[in-house]
């Protein structure tokens, strides 16, 4: 017996997380359907609202013209892209938890957190790819960012930070769902949030109750800040602060909740 002499495996947080990330990327690569849908949906909304309804909506909203309206809604479309991308993590986490292999991971000398970290990093990479593709498509149909390269990079940077926070919320929602179907139900409400904010029409045009909600919900300051960065109109400090505040709250809340759920559910039956 080599009880004392055998080299002992110890958890290695970075290496184990990278292994789990590879596993999740392999899943996405092999089953690209969901990731593709995560890109197609915002593109569809952009085509529908920007190209199809753009002329009329633009006139109504007062931005004037189709391309001006496309410019107006692109920040909301980008916010929608990361909200869908992040909430899809809930589905992949929930379906992962039904796999027996998760129980195996728990009996191995690996970093406990690596399973969830792998999901979060994988989701982040997919979010970045989706953001770039959706923004690229917006440029193709006539979007122009007056803020220039710096503005685009700043906006993408903020959106990626928000995506990171939202993904932890997605992980928690996925862990708390009893079924994969239950987890998939969380995508729609979060995806629709930009509509109940300043994403498609100015909040001033909304009835007072909804307007109050629209002004304070997380996506409005996020969309406003992204819009200001992309258009180079100068970021409103209070909006930025509100956007970051929401992001920290969602991220920390999602992380703490995920951790508690993952520790509790040692064995799922």
């Amino acid at each position: 017996m080599s009880t004392t002499t055998a080299p002992v495996n110890r958890p290695q947080i970075v290496r184990d997380s990278m292994t789990m990330l590879r596993r999740n990327l392999l899943h996405s690569w092999r089953y690209p359907g969901m990731s593709a849908w995560g890109i197609l949906q915002p593109v569809l909304f952009l085509v529908l609202f920007g190209v199809v309804f753009g002329e009329a909506f633009g006139a109504g909203v007062g931005t004037g013209g189709r391309s001006a309206y496309i410019t107006y809604i692109t920040p909301a479309i980008l916010a929608m892209t990361i909200s869908i991308g992040s909430m899809m993590t809930a589905v992949s986490v929930a379906s992962d938890m039904t796999e027996g292999v998760i129980a195996r991971f728990r009996t191995m000398a690996i970093a406990r957190s690596s399973v969830l970290t792998g999901h979060v990093l994988g989701s982040l990479i997919l979010n970045v790819i989706s953001l770039v593709l959706v923004l690229g498509f917006a440029f193709v149909i006539g979007y122009r960012a007056d803020g220039g390269a710096a503005g685009v990079l700043g906006a993408l940077g903020l959106l990626i930070v928000v995506a990171y926070a939202l993904t932890w919320l997605g992980v928690a929602l996925g862990l708390s769902s009893k079924t994969v179907e239950g987890a998939s139900n969380v995508i729609l409400p979060v995806m629709l949030l930009p509509f109940f904010g300043s994403g498609f029409v100015p909040v001033e045009t909304m009835p007072s109750g909804i307007r109050w909600f629209a002004e304070y919900q997380p996506f409005t300051p996020i969309i406003e800040t992204v819009r200001a960065l992309l258009e180079g109109t100068g970021v409103d400090g209070s909006q930025l602060l509100l956007a970051l505040g929401w992001t920290v709250l969602i991220g920390v809340g999602g992380y703490v909740w995920s951790r508690a759920l993952y520790r509790r559910d040692a064995v799922r039956r």
Binding site: R23, L26, H27, R30, Y31, E99, G100, V101, A103, R104, T107
Partner: peptide, 12 residues
């Protein structure tokens, strides 16, 4: 550990 229910990753 090899459990009663397969601890394999079915997608791989």
């Amino acid at each position: 550990v090899t459990g009663q229910f397969s601890a394999i990753d079915g997608l791989l």
